[in-house]
Design a binder for these strands. Structure first.
Lengths: 341, 341
DNA sequence: CTGAAAGCGCTTACAG
DNA sequence: CTGAAAGCGCTTACAG
């Protein structure tokens, strides 16, 4: 049943039916009531495509990230995506989950949707500037908000939610220092320069020797962490910051296999603070990001950009960059130095 | 730029432009080429709403689940959602992530989209029959595939991917029995009758006393598991099956706090086999479901239903029920009985 | 407050 | 292989 048939049935014009449903324009309350009741009885709902064809607006956004070889490595993105979907819902947006394998380019479908008006905006979880720029280049027809660890210089049109690793990592290193740790190692993850830089800065800020800080490369899996911790133990570290919680769990396991106990003999700190990290054994200290805040900030910016674009207004002068501080969450994987260097 | 302006620019009719993009109808290859090049140069992309208005098809599906108080309890759903998005992408569908708080009804937006043609179908992750039926009642205008632990009787229009808990739980109990366990407890989760029934059946199949099997209620959190295991230890169990992996982790921790070691003194088995369960300490034995298979089955059925509906064909006689067996994944949280009852 | 009619941007029988 | 025109189902300025 379309609006024509339905309006005839209701004894009004299509314009009146449209006004009843859209809430735009004046309409007598009684008429509106009657139309709603009739619609309920006869099962009429306005066709959403026809509405959008007029509206130049869809109230759909996409969250885009590339997935890994195994879901365990996507926990960070999945948790973020869920928070984004929640925050988007609050503002009346529906969220498309757009996934792509790490090595592949965004699907043609996404491009079609974006260029063809099927999407109001996109939230991109990015881990490299080059990747982000390439993405923005491809999707310049609609607003994009980038979530990243860096304060990248991006084209005007894009928003940026910047996760400030320095704050939380700084706290972590300060905490370790005050517990007596002076030889602190690092296990590298993928595309983690922001994290590693923050680590080096934090060492310096604490008056520790950043130049000779031992580092090993993960970069990804639990097993990588198990192996990497071996290298660092040879370098006589007493504490290790790991680029991800998964690597940290691997490090704990790897240490254990070598007879080194956490936290008695070695302190381990992860980064990301996944939801299960409080429940590992020992509970894993980690540098956490407030995912809910990030999601809300990203949606707020995107909504702003979408509204500006739709209204054809001059984009407000305000900066579309929002910085979110990470913070250190101490847990039982930390202890005082037992065998100072 | 719309099709009218663009077709003028290209010196052809709108019909020809449409044929070039849609792939429908005959069109000279050279014409098509020229149109594509021009479109690329001038930045023309067909408006997707206009296309969908004609097509009665959107190639968008939604995956719907209700989220919990904390993301940790949503890992199961999030992992499933990601797999569904992947599987959907392969078949050319975009996936909407539709979330609702546990206590709330599906958003009006979802209903609008579904009734107004904005969605081809929905995949519902359900944990109660009443909930699923209410949902189906509300969304009877489009195909729905339910993912659930039960072989529920559902209206014709719905598909069902049924996760068969009995297989994996049966294997788990058999494994415990052969390791000498005779007194096996259960920690309840939320809406877990399928799991508990499977547990009782498995006990019987192994010739164990199901009637007197100790059970404690979680039902949700890590702390719930910590508490529940206390009750079961008083009941002198030597092994425990937990309704979720989170409860199982809590149980391990709770046992540890009481001086009971896993697996030396007590064996613990979880259900769900979350991606991080291989990496807990000890690695957690669990009853797992092949998420990728489930997602693919759900998408295959939904695609079938959508295609049938769209084509207005008589729905094929084939059953739209697909059963997926769970399976037991033994890991280091298991051991032989140390102090037989 | 309500209606007639043009317009949103495509697609697809129909005719050639 | 291509075009003219009706149709997909709404919305909204315009007139009353």
């Amino acid at each position: 049943m379309d609006i024509k048939k339905f309006s005839r049935l209701a004894g009004v014009s299509t314009a009146t039916v449209s006004r009843a449903f859209s809430g735009n324009g004046r309409i007598k309350e009684a008429t509106r009531q009657r139309i709603f009741e009739l619609a309920a009885t006869h099962g009429y709902t306005p066709n959403i495509h026809a509405q959008r064809l007029n509206a130049r607006r869809t109230d759909i956004i996409a969250v885009y990230y590339s997935f890994s070889t195994a879901p365990i490595f996507d926990y960070y993105n999945m948790e973020l995506a869920q928070e984004i979907a929640k925050a988007a819902g609050v503002r009346g947006y529906t969220t498309n989950l757009e996934l792509t394998q790490k090595t592949e380019a965004p699907s043609p479908g996404l491009q079609r949707a974006a260029a063809g008006g099927g999407l109001d905006g996109i939230i991109l979880v990015a881990d490299s500037r080059a990747g982000a720029l390439a993405f923005l280049q491809q999707f310049k027809s609609i607003p994009v908000v980038v979530i990243a660890n860096h304060r990248w210089d991006l084209p005007e049109a894009a928003g940026l939610v910047r996760i400030h690793q320095d704050s939380g990592i700084g706290e972590a290193i300060a905490h370790l220092k005050s517990a007596g740790h002076a030889r602190i190692g690092f296990i590298h993850g993928v595309a983690d320069t922001a994290k590693h830089d923050a680590f080096l800065n934090a060492l310096q800020a604490q008056g520790l020797d950043a130049a000779s800080a031992p580092a090993a490369s993960g970069p990804l899996s639990f097993e990588d962490g198990e192996r990497a911790i071996g290298e660092l133990l040879s370098a006589r570290v007493t504490a290790v910051l790991c680029s991800t919680d998964i690597l940290a769990l691997g490090a704990i396991s790897g240490a254990d296999k070598r007879g080194v106990r956490v936290p008695q003999d070695l302190s381990i700190v992860g980064i990301d603070n996944l939801s299960f990290s409080p429940f590992t054994r020992p509970p894993l200290a980690s540098v956490g990001i407030p995912r809910t805040e990030i999601a809300e900030a990203a949606i707020a910016i995107l909504d702003q950009l979408v509204t500006d674009t739709t209204a054809d207004a001059t984009p407000s002068a305000r900066q579309f960059i929002h910085t979110i501080n990470t913070r250190f969450i101490p847990r039982a994987s930390l202890g005082p130095v037992s065998r100072p260097a």
